[in-house]
Simulated assay, not measured.
Amino acid sequence: MAEHVLQDPVVQVTEVRELARDLVVIPDRRVQLVPNIGIIGGREAVLVVETGLGPGNAAKVLEFAADYAQGRRLFLTTTHFHPEHSFGAQVFAGEATFLVNRAQAEDLKVKGAGYLEMFKGLGEPVARRLRGVELVEPDVVYDEAYDLDLGGRVVQLRATGRAHSKGDQVIRVPDADVLFTGDLVEAAQFAIFPWFPPYDADVSGTRWLAVMQRLAAEGAGVVVPGHGDVGGPQLLTDVRDYLRLLRDETWIRRDSAVGEQTIIDEISALMIERHPEWAGREWIEKGVSCLCTEHPA
């Protein structure tokens, strides 16, 4: 990872935002390694989206969700396997049914332990949050699509295919026109490319762009990004347009046989000029490096 995290990545359940009837978000408050967490209710059950980083955060989320559910059955899903999104699932064991897509389950099985060790190296606050983490297998695994009936409200879980990770999924609540994207979308932040060859090179800029083109075409009234403020459909088009520009500018330079470091320097300057207010500038370099490998020969 590009830099250590100095702030404690703690989930706070004091500023919960209601997005629609029986649908709330525990916001990330712009704290690194804290995701936006969703609680989606129906007559008979409640779905929790994301756990927070580690068992302590997950315990807070579970306590809030159980109080919110008021006796309704609990389900848990995660948008992808990365630690701040899913490394608290153990706390929900026996309390909620944990379901994800097959590619995400495989990511967790194959890469989970490695990511646990990598994230422990991000600083003492993160390492402390990750103490006692046990990686658990989901209770239910689906292939590409799963419609979860919560009682009067059906929530659509959809695997997107390889993009930010191999196992990304989005969660759509059709009756409320709300879409949870995980790290396919961040608000006011450059797209996070977990490009760490040879350890992890599953992120794909071209496939990610294809996913965002599809999501932007489908639209959503309310978009809950992995990190950053909840917004509207503009969040989808912002990421789509950024990824398209990143690909095009990288490939134009690659066609001219420009060296990779020169490409990185030029495109970083261009993107920062376009979006000076966006966070995560270090991820531009990772995106360029990824797209260099995807350049058509």
Rank of each mutant, 00 (worst) to 15 (best):
D28P: 15
A257K: 08
E84R: 13
A113W: 08
Q213W: 06
E106M: 06
Q261L: 11
F87E: 00
V13S: 11
G161V: 02
R274C: 03
V154K: 09
D8C: 13
D168G: 10
G52S: 10
L148C: 04
Y68G: 05
W208C: 03
F196W: 14
K111Y: 05
D200G: 00
H85P: 08
E218H: 05
A210I: 06
H85Y: 07
Q261H: 11
D28Y: 11
G259S: 15
P27D: 06
V222E: 06
P198F: 04
D265Q: 11
T14K: 08
N57I: 00
R158A: 02
D177F: 00
D248M: 15
K166Y: 11
V140T: 12
A66V: 14
F87R: 10
T77M: 04
V25H: 09
A89E: 06
Q32R: 08
L116G: 01
A93H: 15
L215Y: 00
D147R: 04
L122F: 13
L148H: 05
Q32D: 12
E50G: 04
E50L: 10
L150N: 03
P233I: 02
V185Y: 00
A279Y: 09
D107I: 04
A163S: 12
K286S: 13
V16D: 05
A201S: 15
Y242F: 08
V223A: 10
E285W: 09
L19M: 07
T181I: 09
A188I: 06
